[in-house]
Design a protein around this nucleic acid. Structure first.
Lengths: 184, 184
DNA sequence: TAAAATCTGTGACAAAAGTCAAAAAAGAAG
DNA sequence: CTTCTTTTTTGACTTTTGTCACAGATTTTA
């Protein structure tokens, strides 16, 4: 966790100490839910090993909106900030190890440590950039183009995630992705 | 600007003084470009009055990915952070007044003021939340549903923006939006 | 490893959205 | 006002994607 956080901002020893104090380790097995709709999301999570998906359940259909690969952070920003019950679910697609940071502790640490606040800001810039790119794909590219770009951008992800989950993330039906794959 | 920034974090007088020092006012008339593809984006902008759109130009087609209403911030996060030439264009849809903050100054201020850094972090959380919602609409809803939700969420925007620009933002053709409007 | 469950591929057809062309409407400019 | 320009609407047709049903594969698990 330290190594991958240092790629964003190098934190001093004191800040690390503070942060380490509030971390709690979790283990999930494939299929476990880290966040269920109706729950208030009160943590941010750092995924050490494994793979997660974030999805909405609307009229009986699950729609993936994100995958989380190892060494990255995940939460439901909307529920976390508002304190309202989540609409989102977060589920382990593979057995996973992660650290959680309670919201209350994080806010305290942000106040105490300018460095950590700077880390938070830069992490959010990263996430925003990614999210802007993901959204733009829908207006800029066809289903087939989105798939091709995903393969180029995250070949590892495409290997590890089932066709059905990928299709949902790309905003298309399993059958359509199956056909896209066949014809090239 | 102070009023709308205070809704995010209340900044102390000193920080305000620092920030005010680096602001530069700009006027745009309808049609003016604030950012052109190929330019490196070196500022963040605060829109005081007017209306902007952000769009990509791909094979001769303009595709809108965002609108900026008064009292909000806008930039090309990707170009700003990477220092690479922008792909994005930002254009005034109405005559606009805005303040710009040079990247170099902003980074300096972030270091000097923990408060401003906190402001930045919270602003980014807002932007991320919005962007996540926008992206999710494409996987969750049909063209017609996206349009209906936009009308409910930002009726003001729907009034002020032409059908063509709205359609592009929703990821559909003008003709399709025209038909959606007719049939209800 | 056999049976069950889940996931993927395929075909035939339906629905949604795109394309192209042209007319109508609305807005800007002299 | 009247003309010019841009935007919106409409119709006919095409393409893309979705739907449903079912057959093969693959994976899980007992």
């Amino acid at each position: 966790m330290q190594a991958s956080m240092n790629q964003i901002v190098t934190l001093d020893k004191d800040t690390w100490g503070l942060l380490r104090n509030v971390l709690v380790e979790h283990q999930l097995v494939k299929g476990d839910l880290l966040l269920k709709p109706g729950q208030v999301c009160k943590h941010i999570f750092f995924l050490q090993t494994g793979l997660l998906r974030s999805f909405y359940l609307t009229d009986g259909e699950e729609r993936n909106v994100a995958f989380t690969l190892e060494n990255s952070f995940v939460t439901d920003m909307k529920s976390l900030r508002s304190g309202q019950p989540a609409q989102l679910s977060i589920q382990a697609l593979e057995s996973s190890t992660l650290q959680s940071i309670p919201k209350a502790d994080l806010l305290g640490l942000y106040e105490r440590s300018h460095h950590l606040e700077a880390f938070g800001r830069r992490l959010l810039e990263n996430l925003l950039e990614e999210q802007e790119e993901y959204a733009a794909w829908f207006t800029l590219y066809s289903a087939r183009e989105r798939y091709n770009r995903l393969v180029k951008k995250q070949p590892d992800l495409v290997q590890r995630v089932s066709l059905g989950h990928l299709a949902s993330f790309l905003g298309i039906r399993r059958e359509t992705l199956s056909r896209i794959r066949k014809l090239k």
